[in-house]
Computed example of a mutant assay.
Amino acid sequence: MVAGSPALWASQPASAAHDATGYPSRPVRIIVPVAAGGSADKLTRLVAERLTALWGQTVVVENVAGASGTIGAARVAKAPADGYTLMQQGEGITLNAILFNQLPYRTDEAFTPIIKAVVNPQILVVNPGTGIRSFADYLARAKAQPGTLTLALPGNGGIAHVAHELLAQQTGAQVNYIPYSGGGPATLDVLAGHANATLITLAAVTDHVRSGKLRALAVTTPYRSQALPTVPTMAEAGLPGFAVESWQGFFAPAGTPPGIVEKINRDIQTVLSMPEVHARLEEMGFKVAGGSAADLAASLKAERPRYARAIQTAGITLR
């Protein structure tokens, strides 16, 4: 299976404005393929609320978690290509196509890119009760006591998993991975002390870090987040050159009329540019991205070989 096939992602038809006439004339559903409470869910609900006001039609967010996001994606792949069922997804759409031997859909044929909404760091956080105070402390314990630290993963084989495997390969740190159905459940277990740490989208835990309920150790991007500017990058904290940036965006079933895709893209960009929305996303830890459907298609094509190499080197497999 090939994710982000150049033949597909580059083959979206030219503009056809009449395709969007009267759209939407009834409620629109956005499938979030992870559990409620995480960053993907927060982003989607914020966008859905503003689209509801803009369109005069209810935009419903539905969480369909399981199997690293592939259950929700399969539901969207089988939905009518009419713009009334959309999907929130990020780099997981590429990762799953690499990691799974079989999926109930062909990634390179099932979805139409709409927009890359935001980019964001992954952040390593721990429960303060661990006594770990810095990224150096974390690495030292993970190397001195291999497998004793428990790391809650917001999805098996997701970007956090890939990023931590790259970290482990570079440092020799070994932890016990515990996969969850999304960022929300993973965060709750770290807060409760049932797991020691999580590597997760920064926007999912900013409030908990600010309140002191979680201790932030480092972010995966080569730049610090404006939302948590005192948290160092992993490169600054001892891993020169380390950089992983995740993103979140929106898709429709393949075959959705191009005029509808363009309207959704345009209206989501309108939402993202609203001062109060932009400020809220930045406060959460996201960086607004935007751009055209073609921009997202190009990003999908570019990221696949990079992640394929990383997964192969790290030896990550799913069935």
Rank of each mutant, 00 (worst) to 15 (best):
A110M: 03
L217T: 05
P275V: 06
P305C: 07
K143D: 06
Q88W: 02
A14S: 04
T230Q: 13
Q226G: 15
T171L: 13
G66I: 09
G184Q: 08
A195E: 14
L149H: 10
P104Y: 08
L51N: 07
K42R: 12
L191T: 02
Y180F: 15
A160Q: 07
V205R: 03
T148Y: 10
E62Q: 13
A79N: 02
L149R: 04
A293Y: 13
V277N: 11
M284I: 01
T112D: 12
G193P: 10
Q88Y: 00
I178W: 02
L191Q: 06
R141Y: 11
S246A: 09
V47G: 03
A243G: 05
L296D: 03
V219N: 01
A195V: 14
V118A: 05
A252K: 00
A136V: 09
G129M: 10
I71L: 06
D19T: 02
M1S: 11
T187S: 13
G315E: 08
E276N: 12
N101R: 12
A65I: 03
A74S: 04
S15E: 09
F250C: 04
I132T: 02
G129T: 05
I268N: 00
A298Y: 05
N101K: 14
Q122K: 06
P104E: 01
G37I: 12
K42Y: 10
